[in-house]
């Protein structure tokens, strides 16, 4: 910044331009990612690892070839409470098929409150904390609740920002993906 003394020299010039270009590149990259918004349909779902509250580890490899409903929620989020019953019912509907997986990801939530939430809403599908908020970040989520439905090819097939209003809404999305086979 304070290269006041000899920017007429070659080193000074290179340094000044180098700093400027680096700064602009950084800010440009940041601007791009802030404008990108949530992952959109057709994009490949990012790899992730979810360690559930009961100690099970679920990775991207485990869900290959399956339809995944990945719901990001938090116990302090009011709309998530309304949505929990719909998600659980939809999970009951698909549970026995084997090719549909529901995953709950608790964002910025404490374990105690998360577990209380799961118990209160009788959620039975696997749930885990978003360690280091990496899942939230890699899916470029913008808030809670947000739900990403991933098709059997591992692509994002549907993004729901805000809560699902009914079981049917979830079933319609998932059924369409299952029909594609």
């Amino acid at each position: 910044m304070t290269e006041e003394k000899k920017p007429t020299s070659f080193v000074g010039r290179v340094l000044a331009w180098g700093l400027l270009i680096t700064l602009l590149a950084l800010v440009g990259a940041q601007l791009r990612s802030s404008l990108q918004g949530v992952l959109t349909r057709g994009e490949q779902a990012p790899d992730f690892t979810l360690t559930t509250f009961d100690g099970q580890t679920i990775t991207s490899a485990d869900i290959e070839g399956k339809v995944v409903v990945l719901n990001i929620w938090a116990s302090w989020c009011l709309p998530c409470k309304d949505e929990a019953a719909h998600l659980e019912q939809a999970w009951q509907h698909y549970q026995d098929r084997g090719d549909v997986i529901f995953l709950g990801v608790a964002y910025v939530d404490t374990e105690k409150e998360s577990l209380a939430f799961i118990e209160e809403h009788h959620v039975t599908y696997p749930n885990g904390p978003d360690l280091g908020t990496t899942i939230y970040t890699s899916f470029r989520a913008r808030g809670v609740p947000e739900t990403f439905v991933i098709n059997k090819l591992g692509e994002i097939a549907s993004v729901k920002i805000g809560p699902y209003q009914s079981v049917e809404e979830i079933i319609t999305v998932v059924d369409r993906l299952l029909e594609l086979d």
Binding site: P7, T8, R13, A16, W17, L20, L24, V27, G28, L31, S34, L35
Partner: peptide
């Protein structure tokens, strides 16, 4: 969040670059 980002970015990049180029030119 706003759509003005990219255009604004172009503006600051231009302002910085022109300023630096002029300073470079007249420094001596």
């Amino acid at each position: 969040q706003s759509a003005i980002g990219p255009m604004f970015f172009g503006f600051i990049a231009l302002t910085f670059a022109v300023s630096l180029a002029l300073l470079n030119k007249r420094w001596a």
